[in-house]
Amino acid sequence: MNGDQNLHRPQARPADSNQAVEEPVGTGPGSGVSPARQDFPGSVGGTDGAVPGRPVLAGRCVWAGEAYDVTPGVIGDARRFVTGFLAQLQEDGWIEVSPRLTEIAQLVVSELVTNARKYAPGPCAVEVELSGPVLEITVSDTSPVLPLVLPADPARVGGHGLEIVTALCEDFAAQRDPSGKRIKVRVSVGPAAG
C-alpha cells in the first residue's frame, strides 16, 4: 500500500475474466505459437508489429492492480504504479510506450484518484490493463455517487479535471457497484497517443 509500494509485474489473463492467470507474461502453455495468435498493433519489433517469440494471443490481455488507503501520498503512489506498469510492458516487449502515453496515463490516474480521495470515505483501487490497442485504467472507490462531467466553461474556476480526462480518452464510463463505484477510461496506445 502507500509508502512501501510493491509494483506487480503485469500478468496475462483471459480478456473476459475477473481472475488473473498466475503465469508471468510470456510464459506457460499459452505463450507458444498458436492458431489463436494475432499480431498486436504497436508491439515492439518485427515488420508486422509482432515480437519474435512473444505472440499476443486472441482473448488475452495484460493486467495489474493495486489498492490504496486515501492518504496524502496516494496520488503519487498511483502515478508511480501506472508508470511502472507501462515501463514493464515496454521492458517485456508488449508495446512501445511513448512519453505521451505515459503523460496521459499519469494525468488520468492523478485526476481519478484525486476525486476518490476527495469524495469517497474509504480506500480506492487502481487497475491497469493492456487490452488490444488500448490501455484501460479503472479506479474504484467507496462512494456510490457518480461523477458529473461538466461542459467546457473557461470562466469556471475549478472542476476541469474530468473535462480534461474525457478529452484525452477514447472512452469514459462510470458505474455503481456493491462497494461504491468504478470509473473506467480507455486510452489509445497507438500513434494517436504518441
Rank of each mutant, 00 (worst) to 15 (best):
G59C: 08
I164S: 09
P10R: 01
G28V: 07
R54T: 11
G159L: 09
D177Y: 10
S143P: 03
G180M: 03
H160G: 06
F40W: 10
Q175Y: 10
T166A: 11
S110C: 14
N115M: 07
D92N: 14
D4E: 12
A36L: 11
E111Q: 09
S34N: 13
R182A: 15
V149T: 07
Q106N: 15
G93T: 05
C169K: 00
E22H: 08
I75N: 00
A167R: 09
P178N: 08
G49A: 08
G158F: 07
Y68T: 01
D39Y: 08
L89D: 02
P191D: 15
P41F: 12
P133E: 13
V113G: 02
T166V: 11
E129C: 13
F81M: 04
I95S: 00
T83K: 14
F85L: 05
A67C: 10
P14L: 06
V33C: 11
A120N: 07
A152G: 15
T71C: 13
S179V: 11
A15K: 05
G76F: 10
T27H: 15
G49D: 05
D92A: 13
G3Y: 04
A155F: 10
V189S: 02
P121F: 07
V145H: 08
Y68G: 00
V25H: 04
L130N: 01
E96F: 11
I95M: 06
V44Q: 06
Q11I: 13
L146R: 04
I75C: 05
S34H: 13
E163T: 14
L148P: 05
A12N: 08
A12E: 09
Q175W: 09
A152R: 12
D171P: 00
V134I: 14
T27W: 14
G45A: 11
A20M: 14
W94G: 06
P178D: 14
R54W: 15
D16M: 14
G161Q: 00
S31E: 03
E96H: 09
L57K: 10
V128W: 00
A50H: 08
G190A: 13
G190Y: 03
L146S: 05
K181T: 01
E111W: 02
V82Y: 02
F85P: 00
T47A: 15
E91I: 05
E136G: 04
L148S: 09
E136I: 05
S143N: 07
N2P: 03
G3N: 06
Q5G: 12
V189G: 00
S143F: 02
V109N: 01
W94M: 12
G194V: 01
S43N: 11
E23I: 08
V74G: 01
P147M: 05
V126M: 02
P154W: 08
G159H: 09
P24K: 06
G194F: 02
I164L: 14
P14V: 05
S131V: 10
R79N: 14
Q90D: 15
E66H: 11
R9N: 15
I75E: 05
L135D: 02
Q11M: 15
N18I: 12
P191N: 14
V134D: 03
A116T: 08
R13Q: 13
P24C: 07
L112D: 01
L107Q: 03
L135K: 02
A78F: 03
A173W: 05
I75K: 01
N2S: 13
L112I: 07
P133Q: 09
